[in-house]
Simulated scan of single mutants.
Amino acid sequence: MLKNRNTPSQCERILIHLQTGKSINPDQASNLYGCFRLSARIYDLKKPGFDIDSRLVHENVIQYAEYSMRGVN
């Protein structure tokens, strides 16, 4: 299926998610938005100036980044 102009991009959907005050990790991005390269989408959002924080999460032997937007409650 091809993306049409009315379909928000992964970046747009992730940005909306972050703007609601929620954090996002790679597992959530994959499940919710079909995004398998969350760090690349976060990079794309940071380029125009969106203020996004990252933190490293350690769960047992698994390590991943979790992203949130600064100044959003």
Rank of each mutant, 00 (worst) to 15 (best):
L32A: 04
G21L: 01
R5L: 06
C35Y: 02
I52A: 08
R41N: 09
D51L: 05
N25R: 12
C11G: 15
D44N: 13
I14S: 01
A65F: 15
S54Y: 14
M69F: 02
G21T: 02
I24K: 08
A40D: 14
E59A: 10
P26A: 03
M1G: 07
T20K: 08
Q10R: 15
I24D: 07
E12W: 04
H58N: 14
K3A: 09
I24N: 06
D44Q: 15
I42A: 04
L15D: 02
N25G: 14
G34W: 10
R55T: 13
L32H: 04
S54N: 15
M1I: 08
Q28N: 03
N25Q: 09
V61G: 12
L18V: 08
K46H: 04
P26Y: 03
R13Y: 01
T20P: 00
E66R: 11
A29Y: 10
T7R: 06
S68D: 00
A40E: 12
I52N: 04
Q10H: 14
I16F: 04
A29C: 13
Y67K: 01
N4S: 12
R5D: 11
S39Y: 11
L45F: 02
G71E: 00
R70N: 05
G34K: 12
P26R: 05
K46M: 07
I52W: 05
G49E: 00
R55L: 10
K22N: 11
N60C: 06
S39E: 14
R5F: 11
H58G: 02
S68I: 01
N31F: 02
C11K: 15
F50I: 02
E12L: 06
M1F: 04
Y43R: 15
R37N: 14
Y33W: 07
R13H: 05
D53G: 11
L38M: 07
R37F: 12
I62C: 10
G34N: 15
R13S: 06
S68V: 00
M1N: 05
N73S: 12
Q28R: 10
I52G: 06
T20M: 03
P48S: 02
H17Y: 07
I16N: 09
Y33T: 03
Y67W: 08
N6D: 10
R55E: 14
L56F: 10
Q10M: 12
I14Y: 03
T7Q: 13
Q10T: 15
C35T: 14
R41S: 03
I14V: 13
S39C: 09
A29Q: 09
L32K: 10
S39W: 11
S39P: 06
A29K: 12
I62L: 12
F36G: 07
L2D: 14
I24Q: 04
S9D: 00
Y67R: 06
